[in-house]
Protein backbone atom coordinates (compact mmCIF):
# COMPACT_ATOMS: atom_id res chain seq x y z
CA UNK A 1 0.00 0.00 0.00
CA UNK A 2 2.86 2.33 0.86
CA UNK A 3 4.61 1.81 -2.46
CA UNK A 4 1.33 2.38 -4.20
CA UNK A 5 0.96 5.70 -2.46
CA UNK A 6 4.46 6.87 -3.32
CA UNK A 7 3.83 5.86 -6.90
CA UNK A 8 0.74 7.95 -6.85
CA UNK A 9 2.53 10.93 -5.40
CA UNK A 10 5.12 10.60 -8.11
CA UNK A 11 2.41 10.47 -10.70
CA UNK A 12 0.75 13.57 -9.38
CA UNK A 13 3.95 15.54 -9.69
CA UNK A 14 4.06 14.89 -13.42
CA UNK A 15 2.93 17.61 -15.75
CA UNK A 16 -0.48 17.49 -17.33
CA UNK A 17 -0.17 16.68 -21.04
CA UNK A 18 -3.75 16.53 -22.16
CA UNK A 19 -6.76 18.01 -20.51
CA UNK A 20 -10.32 17.53 -21.68
CA UNK A 21 -12.70 20.12 -20.28
CA UNK A 22 -16.41 19.52 -20.64
CA UNK A 23 -16.05 18.14 -24.19
CA UNK A 24 -19.28 17.90 -26.15
CA UNK A 25 -19.32 16.08 -29.47
CA UNK A 26 -22.57 15.43 -31.27
CA UNK A 27 -23.70 13.72 -34.44
CA UNK A 28 -26.62 15.27 -36.26
CA UNK A 29 -28.54 12.40 -37.82
CA UNK A 30 -31.94 12.31 -39.41
CA UNK A 31 -33.31 10.43 -36.46
CA UNK A 32 -32.10 13.09 -34.08
CA UNK A 33 -29.02 14.42 -32.35
CA UNK A 34 -26.68 11.84 -30.87
CA UNK A 35 -24.69 13.18 -27.95
CA UNK A 36 -21.73 10.88 -28.46
CA UNK A 37 -19.56 12.70 -25.93
CA UNK A 38 -21.44 14.69 -23.38
CA UNK A 39 -19.42 16.79 -21.01
CA UNK A 40 -16.29 14.70 -20.63
CA UNK A 41 -13.44 16.09 -18.52
CA UNK A 42 -10.24 14.31 -17.59
CA UNK A 43 -6.49 14.64 -17.70
CA UNK A 44 -3.60 12.63 -19.04
CA UNK A 45 -0.23 13.31 -17.46
CA UNK A 46 3.09 12.89 -19.17
CA UNK A 47 4.18 9.30 -19.39
CA UNK A 48 0.93 8.02 -17.93
CA UNK A 49 -1.26 5.24 -19.28
CA UNK A 50 -4.93 6.12 -19.19
CA UNK A 51 -7.42 3.46 -20.18
CA UNK A 52 -10.86 4.40 -21.36
CA UNK A 53 -13.33 1.59 -20.84
CA UNK A 54 -16.91 1.26 -21.91
CA UNK A 55 -19.33 -0.57 -24.15
CA UNK A 56 -19.56 0.04 -27.88
CA UNK A 57 -21.16 3.41 -28.44
CA UNK A 58 -20.16 4.83 -25.08
CA UNK A 59 -18.11 7.56 -26.74
CA UNK A 60 -14.60 6.24 -26.20
CA UNK A 61 -13.41 6.47 -29.78
CA UNK A 62 -15.19 9.75 -30.40
CA UNK A 63 -13.35 11.25 -27.42
CA UNK A 64 -10.04 10.21 -28.96
CA UNK A 65 -10.98 11.38 -32.44
CA UNK A 66 -12.10 14.72 -30.97
CA UNK A 67 -8.60 15.22 -29.61
CA UNK A 68 -7.23 14.61 -33.11
CA UNK A 69 -10.03 16.75 -34.52
CA UNK A 70 -10.91 13.99 -36.93
CA UNK A 71 -14.64 14.11 -36.36
CA UNK A 72 -16.14 14.31 -39.83
CA UNK A 73 -19.65 15.54 -40.63
CA UNK A 74 -22.35 14.90 -39.52
CA UNK A 75 -20.25 14.90 -36.35
CA UNK A 76 -19.33 18.15 -34.65
CA UNK A 77 -17.53 19.29 -31.54
CA UNK A 78 -19.99 21.76 -30.07
CA UNK A 79 -18.50 22.63 -26.74
CA UNK A 80 -15.68 22.36 -24.29
CA UNK A 81 -11.95 22.64 -24.58
CA UNK A 82 -9.12 20.19 -25.15
CA UNK A 83 -5.67 21.30 -24.06
CA UNK A 84 -2.64 19.54 -25.40
CA UNK A 85 0.65 20.72 -23.98
CA UNK A 86 -1.00 23.96 -22.93
CA UNK A 87 -2.59 24.77 -26.29
CA UNK A 88 -6.31 24.60 -26.97
CA UNK A 89 -6.52 22.02 -29.73
CA UNK A 90 -9.96 23.17 -30.81
CA UNK A 91 -8.65 26.66 -31.56
CA UNK A 92 -5.61 25.60 -33.63
CA UNK A 93 -5.50 26.38 -37.33
CA UNK A 94 -5.71 23.49 -39.76
CA UNK A 95 -1.96 23.80 -40.36
CA UNK A 96 -1.05 23.69 -36.69
CA UNK A 97 -3.43 20.78 -36.33
CA UNK A 98 -1.65 18.86 -39.05
CA UNK A 99 1.58 19.47 -37.21
CA UNK A 100 0.04 17.95 -34.11
CA UNK A 101 -1.32 14.86 -35.81
CA UNK A 102 1.24 12.17 -36.39
CA UNK A 103 3.98 14.36 -34.97
CA UNK A 104 3.01 15.01 -31.35
CA UNK A 105 0.10 12.62 -31.15
CA UNK A 106 0.32 9.22 -32.78
CA UNK A 107 -2.70 7.01 -33.28
CA UNK A 108 -3.20 3.34 -33.96
CA UNK A 109 -6.45 1.74 -34.93
CA UNK A 110 -8.33 -1.41 -34.21
CA UNK A 111 -8.11 -3.11 -37.59
CA UNK A 112 -4.53 -3.62 -38.74
CA UNK A 113 -5.87 -5.34 -41.85
CA UNK A 114 -7.47 -2.19 -43.24
CA UNK A 115 -5.40 0.56 -41.64
CA UNK A 116 -2.50 0.18 -44.05
CA UNK A 117 -2.70 1.30 -47.65
CA UNK A 118 -2.58 -1.89 -49.74
CA UNK A 119 -0.66 -0.40 -52.66
CA UNK A 120 2.23 1.14 -50.71
CA UNK A 121 5.08 -0.78 -49.11
CA UNK A 122 5.20 -0.62 -45.34
CA UNK A 123 8.49 1.26 -45.61
CA UNK A 124 6.89 3.99 -47.69
CA UNK A 125 4.13 4.31 -45.13
CA UNK A 126 6.55 4.65 -42.22
CA UNK A 127 8.66 7.14 -44.16
CA UNK A 128 5.74 9.45 -44.94
CA UNK A 129 5.32 11.13 -41.54
CA UNK A 130 9.10 11.39 -41.19
CA UNK A 131 9.35 13.25 -44.47
CA UNK A 132 6.29 15.32 -43.65
CA UNK A 133 7.09 16.38 -40.09
CA UNK A 134 10.80 15.80 -39.66
CA UNK A 135 11.62 17.01 -43.18
CA UNK A 136 13.90 14.05 -43.73
CA UNK A 137 15.18 13.08 -47.13
CA UNK A 138 14.10 9.80 -48.60
CA UNK A 139 17.27 7.94 -47.69
CA UNK A 140 17.35 9.25 -44.11
CA UNK A 141 13.70 8.35 -43.66
CA UNK A 142 14.32 4.88 -45.03
CA UNK A 143 17.15 4.29 -42.59
CA UNK A 144 14.94 5.51 -39.77
CA UNK A 145 12.10 3.28 -40.98
CA UNK A 146 14.30 0.19 -40.86
CA UNK A 147 15.33 1.14 -37.32
CA UNK A 148 11.70 1.57 -36.31
CA UNK A 149 10.73 -1.80 -37.75
CA UNK A 150 13.48 -3.35 -35.63
CA UNK A 151 12.26 -1.48 -32.55
CA UNK A 152 8.76 -2.90 -32.88
CA UNK A 153 10.26 -6.36 -32.84
CA UNK A 154 10.08 -7.51 -36.44
CA UNK A 155 13.11 -9.48 -37.57
CA UNK A 156 14.65 -9.00 -41.03
CA UNK A 157 13.69 -5.33 -40.99
CA UNK A 158 15.77 -4.58 -44.08
CA UNK A 159 13.56 -6.94 -46.09
CA UNK A 160 10.24 -6.15 -44.47
CA UNK A 161 10.67 -2.48 -45.29
CA UNK A 162 9.95 -3.32 -48.93
CA UNK A 163 7.06 -5.67 -48.21
CA UNK A 164 3.45 -4.89 -49.01
CA UNK A 165 0.85 -5.09 -46.23
CA UNK A 166 -0.80 -8.17 -47.74
CA UNK A 167 2.39 -10.14 -47.21
CA UNK A 168 2.32 -9.62 -43.44
CA UNK A 169 0.28 -11.23 -40.69
CA UNK A 170 -2.17 -9.30 -38.53
CA UNK A 171 0.24 -9.05 -35.63
CA UNK A 172 3.03 -7.82 -37.88
CA UNK A 173 0.74 -5.25 -39.45
CA UNK A 174 -0.22 -3.95 -36.04
CA UNK A 175 3.47 -3.67 -35.20
CA UNK A 176 3.94 -1.70 -38.40
CA UNK A 177 1.04 0.54 -37.40
CA UNK A 178 2.80 1.14 -34.10
CA UNK A 179 6.04 1.92 -35.93
CA UNK A 180 4.21 4.46 -38.08
CA UNK A 181 2.53 6.06 -35.08
CA UNK A 182 5.81 6.27 -33.17
CA UNK A 183 7.93 7.43 -36.10
CA UNK A 184 7.99 11.07 -35.01
CA UNK A 185 8.39 10.39 -31.28
CA UNK A 186 4.96 11.60 -30.20
CA UNK A 187 4.27 12.69 -26.65
CA UNK A 188 1.00 10.86 -26.67
CA UNK A 189 -0.02 7.64 -28.35
CA UNK A 190 -3.71 6.97 -28.79
CA UNK A 191 -4.43 3.29 -29.23
CA UNK A 192 -8.03 2.62 -30.21
CA UNK A 193 -8.65 -1.01 -29.28
CA UNK A 194 -5.27 -2.06 -30.64
CA UNK A 195 -5.63 -5.71 -29.77
CA UNK A 196 -9.30 -6.41 -30.41
CA UNK A 197 -8.73 -7.84 -33.88
CA UNK A 198 -5.75 -9.99 -32.91
CA UNK A 199 -5.62 -13.42 -31.38
CA UNK A 200 -4.76 -13.82 -27.73
CA UNK A 201 -1.05 -14.66 -27.90
CA UNK A 202 -0.43 -11.79 -30.29
CA UNK A 203 -2.50 -9.51 -28.06
CA UNK A 204 -0.13 -10.11 -25.17
CA UNK A 205 2.89 -9.45 -27.38
CA UNK A 206 1.47 -6.20 -28.69
CA UNK A 207 0.61 -5.01 -25.18
CA UNK A 208 4.10 -5.86 -23.97
CA UNK A 209 5.55 -3.99 -26.89
CA UNK A 210 3.38 -0.94 -26.21
CA UNK A 211 4.39 -0.93 -22.56
CA UNK A 212 8.06 -1.27 -23.39
CA UNK A 213 8.05 1.47 -26.02
CA UNK A 214 6.04 3.74 -23.76
CA UNK A 215 8.58 3.40 -20.97
CA UNK A 216 11.55 3.87 -23.28
CA UNK A 217 10.15 7.07 -24.66
CA UNK A 218 8.36 8.41 -21.58
CA UNK A 219 5.29 8.70 -23.74
CA UNK A 220 1.74 8.99 -22.50
CA UNK A 221 -0.67 6.32 -23.68
CA UNK A 222 -4.39 6.73 -24.12
CA UNK A 223 -5.66 3.20 -24.46
CA UNK A 224 -9.23 2.63 -25.52
CA UNK A 225 -10.52 -0.82 -24.81
CA UNK A 226 -13.46 -2.82 -23.60
CA UNK A 227 -11.28 -5.56 -22.24
CA UNK A 228 -10.81 -5.25 -18.48
CA UNK A 229 -7.90 -7.70 -18.68
CA UNK A 230 -6.05 -5.17 -20.81
CA UNK A 231 -6.94 -2.44 -18.33
CA UNK A 232 -5.61 -4.38 -15.37
CA UNK A 233 -2.40 -5.06 -17.20
CA UNK A 234 -1.71 -1.65 -18.68
CA UNK A 235 -3.48 1.19 -16.93
CA UNK A 236 -2.26 3.69 -14.38
CA UNK A 237 -5.56 5.50 -14.44
CA UNK A 238 -8.96 4.29 -15.61
CA UNK A 239 -11.88 6.19 -17.08
CA UNK A 240 -15.21 4.37 -17.31
CA UNK A 241 -17.61 5.80 -19.86
CA UNK A 242 -21.30 5.15 -20.28
CA UNK A 243 -23.64 6.87 -22.72
CA UNK A 244 -21.09 9.54 -23.62
CA UNK A 245 -20.34 10.50 -20.01
CA UNK A 246 -17.67 9.51 -17.54
CA UNK A 247 -19.37 7.55 -14.78
CA UNK A 248 -16.26 6.73 -12.79
CA UNK A 249 -12.56 7.44 -12.87
CA UNK A 250 -9.67 6.66 -10.62
CA UNK A 251 -6.37 4.87 -10.22
CA UNK A 252 -6.46 1.34 -11.50
CA UNK A 253 -6.26 -0.40 -8.13
CA UNK A 254 -9.03 1.73 -6.67
CA UNK A 255 -11.25 0.91 -9.59
CA UNK A 256 -10.67 -2.82 -9.40
CA UNK A 257 -10.65 -3.15 -5.62
CA UNK A 258 -13.34 -0.71 -4.84
CA UNK A 259 -15.59 -0.01 -7.81
CA UNK A 260 -18.19 2.52 -6.80
CA UNK A 261 -20.43 2.98 -9.75
CA UNK A 262 -22.84 0.07 -10.21
CA UNK A 263 -21.89 -0.03 -13.89
CA UNK A 264 -18.19 -0.53 -13.15
CA UNK A 265 -19.17 -3.10 -10.59
CA UNK A 266 -21.20 -4.92 -13.23
CA UNK A 267 -18.34 -4.79 -15.72
CA UNK A 268 -15.95 -6.32 -13.24
CA UNK A 269 -18.47 -8.96 -12.25
CA UNK A 270 -18.99 -9.85 -15.90
CA UNK A 271 -15.33 -10.74 -16.31
CA UNK A 272 -14.71 -14.49 -16.20
CA UNK A 273 -12.51 -15.57 -13.31
CA UNK A 274 -10.14 -18.46 -13.81
CA UNK A 275 -10.91 -21.38 -11.52
CA UNK A 276 -14.44 -20.29 -10.83
CA UNK A 277 -16.82 -21.93 -13.22
CA UNK A 278 -20.40 -20.76 -13.25
CA UNK A 279 -23.44 -21.78 -15.25
CA UNK A 280 -23.49 -18.46 -17.03
CA UNK A 281 -21.26 -15.45 -16.91
CA UNK A 282 -22.77 -12.47 -15.22
CA UNK A 283 -24.33 -9.98 -17.57
CA UNK A 284 -25.61 -6.54 -16.79
CA UNK A 285 -29.36 -6.75 -17.37
CA UNK A 286 -31.01 -4.51 -19.92
CA UNK A 287 -29.72 -2.60 -22.90
CA UNK A 288 -27.46 0.33 -23.57
CA UNK A 289 -29.73 3.38 -23.72
CA UNK A 290 -30.72 4.71 -27.10
CA UNK A 291 -28.20 7.49 -27.82
CA UNK A 292 -30.95 9.66 -29.26
CA UNK A 293 -33.13 11.32 -26.61
CA UNK A 294 -31.15 10.21 -23.63
CA UNK A 295 -33.16 10.61 -20.44
CA UNK A 296 -32.49 13.56 -18.19
CA UNK A 297 -31.88 11.25 -15.24
CA UNK A 298 -29.05 8.79 -14.68
CA UNK A 299 -28.53 6.81 -17.92
CA UNK A 300 -27.83 3.64 -16.00
CA UNK A 301 -30.92 3.86 -13.80
CA UNK A 302 -32.94 1.37 -15.90
CA UNK A 303 -30.30 -1.31 -15.46
CA UNK A 304 -29.07 -0.45 -12.00
CA UNK A 305 -29.71 -2.96 -9.20
CA UNK A 306 -29.54 -0.19 -6.59
CA UNK A 307 -31.83 2.29 -8.29
CA UNK A 308 -33.29 4.96 -6.00
CA UNK A 309 -35.99 7.57 -6.57
CA UNK A 310 -33.38 10.28 -7.01
CA UNK A 311 -31.81 8.33 -9.87
CA UNK A 312 -34.94 8.83 -11.94
CA UNK A 313 -35.13 12.54 -11.28
CA UNK A 314 -31.87 14.05 -12.44
CA UNK A 315 -28.37 13.18 -13.51
CA UNK A 316 -26.08 12.68 -10.49
CA UNK A 317 -23.20 15.08 -9.89
CA UNK A 318 -19.67 13.77 -9.82
CA UNK A 319 -18.21 13.40 -6.35
CA UNK A 320 -14.57 13.00 -5.45
CA UNK A 321 -13.25 11.16 -2.43
CA UNK A 322 -10.02 11.88 -0.63
CA UNK A 323 -8.13 9.45 -2.88
CA UNK A 324 -9.14 11.25 -6.06
CA UNK A 325 -11.62 8.57 -7.02
CA UNK A 326 -14.45 10.26 -8.92
CA UNK A 327 -17.91 8.80 -9.31
CA UNK A 328 -21.14 10.05 -10.78
CA UNK A 329 -23.67 8.20 -8.63
CA UNK A 330 -26.09 9.20 -5.90
CA UNK A 331 -25.12 6.27 -3.74
CA UNK A 332 -21.59 7.56 -3.44
CA UNK A 333 -22.77 11.07 -2.92
CA UNK A 334 -24.75 9.90 0.06
CA UNK A 335 -21.90 7.75 1.26
CA UNK A 336 -24.08 4.68 1.16
CA UNK A 337 -22.58 1.49 2.46
CA UNK A 338 -22.91 -1.61 0.41
Amino acid sequence: MATQLTERRKAEKRQTLVEFKDLQTIFETEAGTIRAVNGVSFQIREGETVCIVGESGSGKSVTALSLMRLISPPGKIVGGEIFFDGKDVLKLSEREMRHLRGNQVGMIFQEPMTSLNPVLTVGEQIMEPLMEHRLMTKSEARKQAIGLIEQVGIPRAAEIVDAYPHELSGGMRQRIMIAIALSCDPKLLIADEPTTALDVTIQAQILDLLRKLKEERNMALMLITHDLGVVAEMADYVIVMYGGRIVEEGYVLDIFRNPRHPYTEGLIKAKPVIGRRTERLYTIPGQVPNPINLPNHCYFADRCPYVMPACLERYPETTVDERGHKTACFRCAEGAER
Binding site: H99, L100, R101, G102, S115, L116, N117, V119
Partner: peptide, 26 residues
Protein backbone atom coordinates in the same frame (compact mmCIF):
# COMPACT_ATOMS: atom_id res chain seq x y z
CA UNK B 1 -14.26 5.66 -46.11
CA UNK B 2 -11.46 3.12 -45.79
CA UNK B 3 -9.68 3.02 -42.49
CA UNK B 4 -6.28 3.61 -44.06
CA UNK B 5 -7.40 7.03 -45.23
CA UNK B 6 -8.42 7.89 -41.66
CA UNK B 7 -5.00 6.62 -40.60
CA UNK B 8 -3.35 8.87 -43.19
CA UNK B 9 -5.40 11.73 -41.81
CA UNK B 10 -4.24 10.91 -38.30
CA UNK B 11 -0.64 11.16 -39.49
CA UNK B 12 -1.15 14.80 -40.38
CA UNK B 13 -0.20 14.36 -44.03
CA UNK B 14 -0.95 17.28 -46.31
CA UNK B 15 -3.66 17.00 -48.93
CA UNK B 16 -1.19 16.72 -51.77
CA UNK B 17 0.36 13.61 -50.26
CA UNK B 18 -2.99 12.09 -49.43
CA UNK B 19 -4.20 12.67 -52.99
CA UNK B 20 -1.14 11.58 -54.91
CA UNK B 21 0.55 9.09 -52.62
CA UNK B 22 -2.48 7.40 -51.09
CA UNK B 23 -5.48 7.81 -53.39
CA UNK B 24 -3.94 7.92 -56.85
CA UNK B 25 -2.09 4.57 -56.70
CA UNK B 26 -5.36 2.95 -55.68
Amino acid sequence: EQEFMLAAEALGLRDRRKLFAHLLPN
